[in-house]
Design a protein around this nucleic acid. Structure first.
Length: 579
DNA sequence: TCCTCTTGCGCC
DNA sequence: AAAGGGCGCAAGAGGA
């Protein structure tokens, strides 16, 4: 069996073309046209797999981008594909690694670079805005940006071979090995994102509706009007100020009204309002909380995003420069905690909810190889262990200090905490401080697996030494330093999370009887947290798979380290009961 | 009317 | 006195 197969769907219809490749990307045979791409892919994926036995990995599927090649195929496949190489995602990783951050990454752009042709800009990601304009844009048959007449399969094959060459050209063998892992993990992320969008997160609209009604009042009959309790609260708030009527959603009008009532405010941020001794402040805080639920996750959101008892988020793999995922529409990564009540497993099914405990400080310990910090990260509660050794048992101080070190915080009473950390954990603190200095000097930093941060803006690079010694320039430089300081942590945590997803996905697929509808499904991912929706009888095995996947990710990304990356796992019917 | 910027808050 | 990283989303403000 060929280790890799290039795949290009026909722009219209169910067919497509395939071509077997070796690991370097050289063709092992001629292109083959098939009438039913789903059936052809499934046959090659299953080839040589004995029924019920341990599965040898299928071929690594090579395609332009998962959303055009994998998502349409998913409903037609009896089982999930094991592995892929997503050219668009890998192109972005390579461009950043090569110091060409932000260059167009579509298949067409990569192919034109290869051929010395003018490189087309990437198209904006299709979102709701374009969907409003009609389906043509959203479901355009070709977003690959290939010039007219170019053969998509030939472009896939050529760009893939070139990417493999660029990866092989990474001089340091260990760095090359880690980058290969990054390429595989990022591509696995593309599979997961497409599958989550296909399966969806179980969402009980009746529970959601009841919650909204309790908080806001019954759903207004006329769309666009405020529900009763929210409108009442707005009136009560304005009465408490005793001024002329104004729009409570306008911060400028709210500030003016408070000033007229003799309460000057710097802003209408809730943390500031909470310190204001006036009845109207408390009412405004409550109004803003409820109003936010209404506008961001109310009935309109439900109408737009929940179908058939499932919330189908649109994830953008690698959408954040650090490698975190972003989302497009639906706010998948910002679901308010209170709405977790509405996430309920189907009858006979359960949710396995797992989140990595204190991921970022553990990443710092593993990255810096600080022996002392690693000891605190070898067991359960890292902050507790840190507090016991360095902060007289004060866990809050330990947490505040360590987070401050990773974010570059200098405000408040954090100075003494940082000094303590610097004394006790010089390697760890030296690691983030070196990253900060690199940023302040205009350099770039990279994650453990080799995801490189964007370069500073041209404005920053134009700053002279005199500028950075001054106030405005110094502020800019320190902001860049905070960014690179945090990047090494956040991006390496994202490396680990991607490896976790890949390892967990493989284990879940091995748990399931081939072709069965009753198989566990990854239905949610949020930076350091996963939810698996599983038949109840498999929940324990899924929980075990999560733990094993966490340890596999640790091994793959950080190798031989005493640091552990435990996941706290809950098996529940309702997401809200997980913590 | 359309568009961009700012504000503020949700999540990690 | 202020001095924390990364996002997405909705609404208002204000200019074109």
């Amino acid at each position: 069996m060929a280790p890799r197969i290039a795949l290009a769907p026909d722009p219209h219809g169910p067919g497509g073309r395939l071509q077997p490749l070796d690991d370097a990307g050289a063709p092992l045979g001629p292109p083959e046209a098939v009438r039913d791409l789903g059936a052809a892919v499934a046959a090659r994926e299953a080839a040589g797999q004995p029924a019920g036995g341990a599965r040898p990995p299928g071929p690594r599927w090579v395609w332009a981008a998962a959303d055009s090649a994998y998502a349409p195929l998913l409903p037609r496949l009896p089982e999930r594909l094991a592995r892929c190489h997503d050219l668009r995602l890998v192109e972005a990783l390579l461009l950043a690694h090569e110091g060409r951050f932000g260059a167009p990454r579509s298949l067409g752009a990569a192919w034109c670079r290869l051929r010395g042709l003018p490189v087309p800009e990437d198209l904006p990601e299709p979102g709701l805005a374009e969907a409003d304009g009609g389906q043509d844009t959203l479901f355009a048959p070709d977003r690959l940006q290939l010039p007219p007449g170019a053969d998509p399969l030939a472009a896939v094959v050529a760009v893939h071979a070139e990417q493999q060459r660029r990866i092989a050209a990474i001089a340091d063998p260990a760095a090359r090995q880690r980058f290969r892992l990054l390429v595989a993990a990022e591509s696995a992320g593309a599979l997961v994102a497409a599958e989550i969008a296909d399966d969806g997160l179980p969402w009980r609209t009746d529970v959601h509706d009841r919650l909204l009604t309790e908080l806001l009042g019954p759903r207004p009959a006329v769309a666009g009007t405020q529900p009763r309790l929210l409108a009442d609260l707005a009136v009560e708030f304005q009465r408490a100020l005793g001024t002329k009527p104004f729009n409570p959603d306008s911060h400028t009008q709210v500030l003016r009204a408070f000033a007229e009532a003799g309460v000057p405010l710097g802003s209408t941020r809730s943390w500031e309002l909470k310190g204001v001794d006036h009845p109207a402040a408390r009412l405004l805080v409550r109004y803003k909380e409820l109003s936010r639920i209404h506008v961001a996750h109310g009935w309109a959101w439900q109408d737009a995003w929940v179908r058939g008892g499932r919330f189908r988020p649109e994830y953008v793999v690698g959408g954040v420069v650090s490698g975190r995922w972003a989302s497009r529409g639906g706010g998948a990564l910002q679901i308010p905690r209170i709405l977790r009540r509405a996430v309920v497993a189907d009858p006979g099914w359960l949710l396995v909810v797992a989140d990595a405990a204190q991921l970022e400080p553990r990443v710092l310990a593993a990255l810096s190889q600080d022996a002392g910090l690693a000891r605190t990260a070898a067991g359960g509660d890292l902050y507790e262990a840190l507090a016991a050794t360095a902060f007289q048992g004060d866990r809050d101080k330990a947490k505040l200090g360590l987070l401050g070190a990773m974010y570059g915080q200098t405000s408040g009473d954090i100075g003494p905490l940082l000094n303590t950390l610097r004394r006790r954990y010089p390697a760890a603190m030296g690691y983030v401080e070196a990253a900060a200095r690199t940023g302040e000097d205009g350099g770039t930093v990279a994650s453990r697996l080799g995801r490189v941060c964007p370069p500073p803006s041209a404005d920053f690079l134009d700053l002279t030494e005199a500028d950075t010694a001054g106030e405005a320039g110094g502020r800019t430089a320190r902001a860049r330093g905070r960014f690179t300081r945090n990047f090494v942590i956040q991006a390496s945590a994202a490396d680990w999370a991607l490896a976790l997803l890949a390892a967990l996905r493989r284990r879940l697929n091995e748990l399931a009887p081939t072709g069965s509808a009753d198989r566990p499904r990854l239905v949610f991912f949020q930076h350091d947290e996963v939810i698996v929706h599983t038949p109840a009888n498999l929940a324990d095995e899924v929980a075990a798979a999560v733990a094993e996947a966490g340890d596999e990710a640790r091994r793959l990304v950080f190798g031989d380290t005493p640091v552990r990356f435990p996941l706290s796992t809950a098996v529940v019917e309702c997401y809200a009961d997980a913590k």
